[in-house]
Amino acid sequence: MPTWLSVTILLVLLALAYWAMRQGWRRRERRSEATVPAVPGAPADLGAPRTDPLEAVYVSSTTAGDWLDRVNAHDLGVRSAAQVQVFDAGVLVRRTGAADVFVPAAQVRGVGTASGMAGKFMGRDGLVVLTWAPDAAPEVGPLLDTGLLVRHRADRPRLVDAVRTLVPTTAGGTA
């Protein structure tokens, strides 16, 4: 087989593979837009800061409990460098190259650490995972898990503790 034909076939196969991956990403984005129609925007007044801005990597957001089901709608599936800061009004994740993510305090459902989620798996409890409701009424849609890889290990417990103060309490303790 001539070299030019081999190269042409290889390029066509690569283009076809890229097209198929792109179609899969778009299909996942449409499906996640149906389950997560909108995400909250940050208010003008965030209140008092509870932490300094912490350097992190925004790993991804997934449906709660299913860390392989990445949510692609509204740039939630885009991994990016970020600064995360906790305020009285909620958690603000300022991202580079993607839309910022704001989680209102009333919509925070839990926080903890984990070894990984879609897009990033690492050693024990390296990610801070924020569980939240994208809609003020959680029965309307699914809960989301958002993974943040905090750059400095010492900042991880500070972030978890600050977010934990936002989790609404119930008669049985924290939700």
Score class of each variant (00 low, 15 high):
His152Val: 05
Ser80Cys: 09
Ala89Phe: 07
Pro138Arg: 10
Val59Gln: 10
Leu68Met: 13
Ala105Glu: 13
Gln85Ala: 12
Val57Met: 12
Pro168Ser: 14
Ala34Gln: 13
Leu92Ile: 02
Ala82Glu: 14
Trp67Ala: 03
Gln83Leu: 12
Arg50Pro: 03
Asp100Gly: 01
Val111Met: 07
Ala175Cys: 05
Ala15Gln: 02
Glu33Ala: 14
Arg153His: 13
Gly141Ser: 15
Gly24Tyr: 01
Gln83Ile: 00
Leu76Gln: 11
His152Gly: 01
Pro2Trp: 02
Gln107Lys: 03
Asn72Pro: 00
Gly97Asn: 11
Val160Trp: 08
Thr51Phe: 14
Asn72Leu: 14
Ala89Asn: 09
Leu16Ile: 01
Trp4Phe: 02
Arg31Asp: 13
Pro168Tyr: 11
Asp69Thr: 06
His152Thr: 04
Thr170Trp: 06
Val163Tyr: 05
Ala42Ile: 02
Asp145Gly: 03
Leu10Ala: 02
Glu33Pro: 00
Thr165His: 08
Leu46Ala: 13
Val84His: 09
Met1Pro: 01
Ala133Pro: 02
Leu143Phe: 08
Gln23Thr: 02
Ala171Arg: 15
Val12Lys: 00
Gln107Glu: 13
Val86Asp: 12
Arg26Asp: 10
Ala44His: 07
Phe87Leu: 05
Gly116Asn: 08
Ala44Asp: 11
Val101Tyr: 09
Phe121Asn: 08
Leu130Pro: 00
Phe87Cys: 04
Arg95Ala: 12
Gly147Met: 05
Arg124Trp: 14
Leu46Glu: 14
Met117Leu: 15
His74Ala: 05
Asp66Tyr: 11
Leu11Ile: 00
Gln107Ser: 12
Arg28Ser: 11
Arg70Glu: 15
Arg109Gln: 14
Thr170Arg: 10
Pro157Gly: 11
Pro40Val: 07
Asp88Met: 01
Val36Gln: 06
Leu10Pro: 00
Arg30Met: 14
Leu127Gly: 08
Pro157Thr: 07
Gly24Thr: 00
Ala114Phe: 03
Met122Ala: 13
Val78Gln: 12
Asp135Ser: 10
Arg28His: 09
Glu33Leu: 12
Glu139Leu: 06
Ala99Glu: 11
Glu139Ile: 02
Thr62His: 08
Val39Tyr: 06
Thr63Val: 14
Ser61Phe: 13
Ala136Trp: 03
Pro2Arg: 07
Leu16Asn: 00
Ala136Ile: 01
Ala175Glu: 14
Leu130Gln: 04
Ala98Cys: 04
Lys120Pro: 00
Val128Glu: 05
Leu166His: 08
Leu143Ser: 10
Asp161Leu: 02
Leu11Cys: 01
Ala81Tyr: 09
Ala34Arg: 15
Val91Ser: 07
Ala106Gln: 13
Val86Pro: 03
Ala73Gln: 08
Gln107Ile: 03
Gln83Lys: 12
